[in-house]
Design a protein around this nucleic acid. Sequence first.
DNA 1: TAGTTTTTTGAACAAGCATTCAAGATGTTG
DNA 2: CAACATCTTGAATGCTTGTTCAAAAAACTA
Lengths: 190, 190
Amino acid sequence: MPKIQFDRQDVLEKATSLFWREGYSATSMQALFEVTGLKPGSVYLAFGNKEGLFKESIDFYGKRSVEYLQAKLSNDDTIEQGICELLLSLVDESTQTDYCSCFLLKSQLELDNQTSLKQHIADYLLTIENVYSNRLATIYGEEEAKQKAASIMVHIFGIRVYGYHTNSKEQILGSLRLGLSWLPWSQLAH
Amino acid sequence: MPKIQFDRQDVLEKATSLFWREGYSATSMQALFEVTGLKPGSVYLAFGNKEGLFKESIDFYGKRSVEYLQAKLSNDDTIEQGICELLLSLVDESTQTDYCSCFLLKSQLELDNQTSLKQHIADYLLTIENVYSNRLATIYGEEEAKQKAASIMVHIFGIRVYGYHTNSKEQILGSLRLGLSWLPWSQLAH
DNA sequence: TAGTTTTTTGAACAAGCATTCAAGATGTTG
DNA sequence: CAACATCTTGAATGCTTGTTCAAAAAACTA
């Protein structure tokens, strides 16, 4: 029954990239047609409308983020060391020239309370927090794990905003060491 | 020479409120006309264009924030206790129903790199960081004061995002106590 | 190959956007 | 009071927005 169509993943990748950089409101459908190479009718048949395409872009980004996080935290010998490495890669990311923070974070702040999208995004953020929490619960008590996970999330949000207008990598690293002093920073190479 | 005009402060207060809630792109000039009670011509004569009105709204909010911060941190007997109280008020703020994070933070993330506004906003955020840094430098060494100020900023950004989609006041408070453990949390009433 | 279903096309739509401007109102000055 | 400078008005501007739809193309079915 299904006929060949455009590469949905490819289109979502391009749409996500544009929404991420420009934001929801500032991204026009016309710009999306150009960047994806699709014509109006195709987009509206496949995604319904602008909000539908945006929602799928959020899903594309959100699922990828959660999967990446889970993989990263299950591979490492110790959980805490894995968290350190992950945070360090976020710091590196934040000093790149084309850095545009986190798509989920930006969208969460941009979207009005009216849209159901806001809760949808919040769910992804909570899922990420739970990944940290569950991993930490294998070392600490449940309450302590939850509290530490929350502190990690606060720091991630913090540096993703801080890194958006400041380029001092040292300052950001110092803040992580100071605020998350219970992590094994010293055990990492350089 | 000057003829009576509309109350500029009042207009800026209303425009700020709308920009803050909706964001720059999602706020239409028509909506600004309605909320301020001004007609197109008046706005364009007084502020130039949409970006001009937005810039003055940022100034209105930014200056108010810096002044409030300076007043708060100079009145209290000890600096660190003052910082604690300030952070606690931010936590309270974040659990209110009409909470819409920080205007500077939201705008910083929404605006594209192309506009000069981005640096203008960054300047306000750096000014705020310097207020913390300078006050802390009276207790700690200069480097340590700077590092602690950066950590405070990371926490403020963090809870202003975290509080946007989570309502658990206890979790946010716990994160502050955990990440900023060098502050005198226990010396505060309740 | 003929028939059916699905996808693509691109022009067209109305609504909303930021902005302009000439005319009228209002206050100040001489 | 007259002359002037400034501010306000609100309709009109041209452009962009998100979205639609009938016709053409393409892919599958029998």
